[in-house]
């Protein structure tokens, strides 16, 4: 029960602010103690519902959101955040149900790229997304994936 509440509060915070909440913010939102929040986050990490930083145990990813800067900056409404990859950048549009603007770059040429989702359509629609890791291996090194 705590896990579902913490997960939902975490995601809602990302959707509203673009950033990860602190443990104290999660504890307040869920009316739990910080140790209970930490324990719930560990279980969510074990269940691959979120990814915690291996060293600090802070939230690293709540897919599609990233708690740390990446090459995929996403704006929706007045909010800006980071996605973990190109798929996740579009995933933010799906998760928040909003138009988004994605700022990134071509991984080969480093040319800046802007991709928009407007009224359910991706613009431009001529781009190709490269998946570097086969699906069966996505969780072997999720940071690389």
């Amino acid at each position: 029960m705590d896990d579902a509440r913490v997960r939902l509060a975490l995601y809602r915070h990302f959707a509203v602010t673009g950033a990860a909440p602190t443990r104290a913010e999660l504890a307040a939102a869920c009316e739990l103690g910080e140790p209970d929040v930490s324990a719930a986050l560990e279980r969510l990490d074990q269940g691959r519902a979120v990814v915690l930083d291996p060293r600090t145990r802070d939230v690293w990813m709540a897919m599609p959101f990233s708690a740390v800067p990446t090459d995929y900056r996403v704006h929706w409404g007045h909010v800006a955040g980071y996605a973990n990859c190109a798929w996740d950048a579009l995933g933010i549009a799906a998760a928040v149900g909003r138009d988004v603007t994605i700022t990134t770059h071509d991984p080969l040429t480093r040319e800046p790229l802007e991709v928009r989702v407007r009224d359910g359509q991706v613009v431009p629609d001529t781009l190709v997304v490269h998946f570097a890791v086969p699906a069966a291996h996505w969780w072997q090194d999720i940071g690389f994936t």
Partner: peptide
């Protein structure tokens, strides 16, 4: 990217 968008919608639409 149209397929990536379809995958993203199917994967993430219910995440919240």
């Amino acid at each position: 990217i149209s397929v990536t968008w379809a995958l993203a919608r199917a994967w993430y639409a219910d995440r919240l």
